[in-house]
Design a protein around this nucleic acid. Structure first.
Lengths: 229, 229
DNA sequence: AACCGCATAAATATGTATATTATTAAGTCC
DNA sequence: GGACTTAATAATATACATATTTATGCGGTT
């Protein structure tokens, strides 16, 4: 009666659990950019030992969300205008490749998944509150899934992983600014237009719209004076 | 009289040292693809403690050279035909972007660096021995520097980092096969042709040659029957 | 008196030794 | 022969020790 029938394979390890929680806090901006991440502080905050904390930090480093400084610990990766632009630019390049490739390899199944992902996203409210902005985790998950679906038929797990990493980076920037920048956006329409272009088989137009979508996001964040020094 | 004048900043940490050595051994194929990496075994082999070994493994994981299996340790990432093709394909896509962008942003300095990188590479022998193949670390370093130079003006550290990661992956494949596939290659001429096209400002041709270069490498490795099951 | 360098002390990151917990393998009973 | 139990193996986490960095304070110098 102790262990359950199928141990599946991944009894979640403490380090993994911590990784997830730390990641969420960095992405949500609860651990601010530039902040020093002292082991002891994190041990208290998440009530864990040093080893799993350390391991989680090391994993975060590969996501580019945390920096390691030899012999002087870890810190949340800082943000800057330049980085935002560079990440956005790179994402535009890579997702252009992924989208064109997906469209070149298009299958009925892929199109259906895309339509479905968009439909689900469109139904979900952006904010949990009608008054101001209150994060809706459901929307965020579906939004991520939608953008993933766009490049989902490119047949390269590497490219997809790179795009996801860049998406996470930009998610953090959005979260840092969203309380001041919301609403000011017509995401629904933009997403719809992209899907339309994809279904119409117009790759140039789809790419143009997708890039514009990302550029506009960047512009809105850049306009938030408070975010950067 | 103990510490040296300028402590610079990065007194190399044990974990970093181990990371470098492990990385080199995985890339060189001394730790074969698929091999289980038991902590204790590595502690003996590199005469180190568990914590630094574990930390090194975690870092390697982000490079995609080592896999982590929850609750059952680490293993060298396996190789396969499919992975080789996928990595090669992705590298072609990304370096195409990097090269076109670099050419669009071309500066005299960038061109000079490229010419220099190629000159140095061309002077260096591929193998340390005239009889058979014996790795020449100098050539490897210059080769890496040359390919880095090609995309060096693209103005995206992210793209460069992604390309480097893919280059490392492919380096491992090359090393695993090189003893059986060497010579069979006219790298010098291919590199020269790429540089010529770049200097002539012919981006389409440069990209065509670069992609052909990578595809040919992949083909040679794929032809090595022994490498894959 | 203000400033720089040096030495010391505190804080904190890194590493070791050990204990705990999960997985794999072996053995036993039905 | 298959499923359960038990023993061995090895991964994960804790507690502790060491080494490095950062902060503090003192004295000497301009």
């Amino acid at each position: 009666m102790p262990k359950l029938a199928l141990a599946v394979s991944g009894s979640e390890t403490l380090a993994t659990n911590l990784y997830d929680r730390l990641r969420a806090d960095v992405l949500a901006g609860k651990l601010e950019p530039g902040r020093k991440l002292q082991i002891e502080f994190l041990c208290e905050r998440y009530s864990a030992g040093q080893t799993p904390v350390r391991e989680a930090l090391n994993r975060l480093t590969s996501d580019g969300l945390v920096e390691r400084r030899e012999q002087r610990g870890f810190a949340v990766t800082p943000v800057s205008r330049d980085d935002l632009l560079e990440i956005t630019k790179t994402r535009c390049w890579l997702e252009e490749v992924g989208l064109r490739e997906s469209m070149a390899q298009r299958t009925a199944q892929w199109e259906e998944e895309l339509v479905l992902a968009h439909h689900r996203l469109a139904k979900m409210p952006r904010s949990n509150s009608t008054a101001g902005y209150e994060e809706n985790p459901g929307w965020e998950a579906l939004h991520k899934a939608f953008h993933h679906a766009l490049i989902g038929a490119c047949q390269s797990r590497w490219l997809i992983a790179f795009c996801e990493q860049l998406a996470d980076q930009l998610y953090r920037y959005r979260q840092l600014a969203v309380h001041r920048t919301y609403p000011n956006r017509h995401e629904r329409g933009e997403h719809q237009a992209i899907v339309d272009a994809v279904l119409a088989g117009d790759a140039d137009e789809a790419v143009r719209l997708l890039n514009a979508h990302y550029r506009q996001t960047a512009d809105i964040i850049l306009a938030d004076a408070q975010l950067f020094g």
